[in-house]
């Protein structure tokens, strides 16, 4: 159990059977008054945020969270299948659970899957991934439109802006936190 005085930014607690992460935290105590622990939390399954003030005698369960290294195998319909690289156990997450992460998943990629009560709830990707450009308009020399980027599509279907010299079939590095182009990868 955690007590209110353990609360801090980044701590994960369980409320009404669901895991929450504290995203903002402030300790307050009016003169001669009671200690108040003001928090903003995010539900780690639904992503919903809420603010709540707790008092000294409030208690919180520790959520049963575990992170496991898994390999992305394939997607079928709405399901994204992963395999534990040590136990070979297979699980899947839905497209909704993965959110923007689906833009950067390619076969055999190693990711960290977060389990809550032995159910997969979230995936964290490597910060940088290398993806093949599958569609890019050729760069027209002498283009004076003034733009210094152009749109391309990568193997996952994700579209982003890149410098004009990137060609179809080349590999580029993308920052998965922002979804932005970093550099061209030479192999």
């Amino acid at each position: 159990m955690y007590s209110a005085s353990d609360l801090r930014k980044g701590l994960k607690v369980q409320i009404d059977g669901e895991p929450y992460i504290i995203t903002e935290f402030e300790f307050s105590k009016p003169g001669k008054g009671q200690a108040l622990y003001r928090t903003k939390m995010r539900n780690m399954i639904t992503g919903n945020q809420f603010t709540q003030t707790y008092r000294s005698n409030d208690k919180f369960e520790k959520p049963d969270l575990e992170e496991r290294t898994m390999q992305f195998l394939y997607s079928q319909d709405n399901e994204y299948h992963f395999m534990d690289t040590t136990s070979y156990e297979q699980i899947f997450l839905t497209r909704e659970q993965l959110g923007d992460n689906v833009n950067f998943l390619v076969d055999n990629m190693e990711v960290q899957v977060l389990f809550f009560d032995n159910r997969p709830i979230d995936v964290s990707l490597p910060i940088f991934v290398n993806l093949v450009v599958t569609r890019a308009d050729p760069w027209v020399k002498g283009d004076t439109s003034g733009t210094d980027t152009k749109p391309v599509t990568v193997e996952t279907g994700y579209q982003l802006q890149v410098p004009p010299f990137i060609n179809e079939g080349e590999k580029i590095q993308i920052d998965t936190r922002t979804g932005e182009y970093i550099t061209r990868v030479k192999e």
Binding site: S28, P30, G33, Q34, L36, T53
Partner: peptide, 11 residues
């Protein structure tokens, strides 16, 4: 609710 209102809305 005195302390809570004091801290969040008044102070």
């Amino acid at each position: 609710r005195f302390d809570e209102i004091l801290v969040t809305e008044v102070e």
